[in-house]
Amino acid sequence: MSRIDRWFTNWTRSVARRSSRRSFLAQLAAVVVGGSTLPLLPVARAQGNAKAPAPDEPDASKAAGDPGECDYWRHCAIDGFLCSCCGGTQKSCPPGTEMSPVTWIGTCHNPADGKDYIISYNDCCGKHVCGLCYCHRNEGDKPEYFAARSNDINWCFGTKSIVYNCSTAIVLGVATEK
């Protein structure tokens, strides 16, 4: 064994004696957290902008036009995990889940055409929570006793299971009053 090998072996053993797995994980986590605050490199995201923008919607390269972003224009009153990040889209559920037929609604402004739209936030149900792209916006949200405008209620009703997976944002029509 060379002198360098011996030195490196002794050093790593010394570190191992002085530090625990717990503190290593804590410091590793700190690096991860710290790293998350740095500007992100242009790596591919799982969802990305691969899907073609819908007609009359904002530019899909901007957050207001990207269904995978919390700032997407339809998400103004959403509370949950975005189906666009979970195998579905803003208007469809991920495979194997079931869309709830009843839901809460919001009224969101589409910057592409300057109109307000009624948005139906149907939940997708039957698989456990997706856990990706959590988004919590509350424009027009009301408490639970005002059910049709409450985004806190688990809206997996009329489905085989009330287990919540993710939320869609479906255009129901142009709003005549906000």
Binding site: L25, A26, Q27, A29, A30, V32, V33
Partner: peptide, 14 residues
């Protein structure tokens, strides 16, 4: 404070 998956981020304790 910050913890990740049950591990506390308590840098500097030692």
């Amino acid at each position: 404070g910050i913890s990740i998956m049950g591990f506390p981020i308590d840098l500097g304790r030692n």
